[in-house]
Nucleic acid binder design. Structure first.
Lengths: 140, 140
DNA sequence: CTGACTGCAAACGTTTTGCACGGTA
DNA sequence: TACCGTGCAAAACGTTTGCAGTCAG
């Protein structure tokens, strides 16, 4: 459980209830779209405005509190900035799974950064495929 | 230089001038957004409608002629379906670079597919970072 | 010739904006 | 108290849709 108030203040943002609720919901769910964040937070904070969600997501991405995860054919999702990990993004359901940094992945990063002259940001290594749940669904 | 007419017909689509122009521009540029496709094609085909571009991109992605490449914080780009490769996506300028399939990457795919029960589609391995051009820009 | 495709214009949903009010520090 | 942040409603924007006319096969 993160101290959202401190996190926000360290990023130069005021610790409002709206922002802390947004961060708390994202931490619980892992990865959320704007819509889902809004729908979740109004359950406990019904006066929340969708415009406020938009403004805050943009702001918190700029400040590096949140990270945007793009999804093929769908709206992007947002997660808290956390330690390096790989995203497995399901092309069927859009679900995002975090996987710990992998030694093979490290080699790939080193190779790309050195040989290809392209500095990889490890927070954004997104591999697209079909998750286990959707594989089972497809078979039926 | 691909035979776009045959490619389209094999996918069950009529080979219209609009579609062939769209495919030709995408092949030349490598990766394009809807806007850029429209702006490019009207240069040689001024009566083209933006709605037609939307309809055709959606259709050709469905038919597997085109592949959508999601870009953090930007609109998606589209490329022709081609042999397996890795996408290096620049988080600064949004530019996409293709890199040939890498032996290290193959190991990563095998690992994810076997251990993690997640079937990777090799056409969609997108690594985000900062390209060489933007690195030079940032330094100034 | 016929169904698929196009272009237009309107409709739609999402995101952004401006502003008066309210809350944090 | 001062300013940042919120909520509202309107505006702007990107995308989709319906339809009448056109074209590829």
């Amino acid at each position: 459980m993160t101290d959202y108030a401190t996190l926000l203040k360290e990023s130069g943002l005021k610790a409002t209830f709206q922002r802390m609720n947004i961060l708390e919901r994202i931490e619980v769910y892992g990865h959320m779209s704007i819509d889902t964040i809004y729908e979740e937070v109004i359950k406990t904070h019904p006066s929340l405005s969708l415009a406020t969600v938009y403004k805050n997501i943009i702001l918190m991405v700029e400040k590096g509190v949140l990270v945007e995860v793009p999804i093929t054919g769908k709206k992007p999702k947002y997660e808290l900035l956390k330690e390096d990990h790989i995203h497995l993004v399901c092309t069927e359901c859009g679900d995002v799974e975090d996987k710990p940094q992998h030694t093979v992945a490290d080699e790939l990063f080193a190779s790309m950064t050195q040989k290809e002259n392209f500095t990889l940001s490890k927070q954004q290594v997104n591999l697209y495929g079909v998750c286990n749940y959707c594989k089972v669904e497809e078979a039926s």
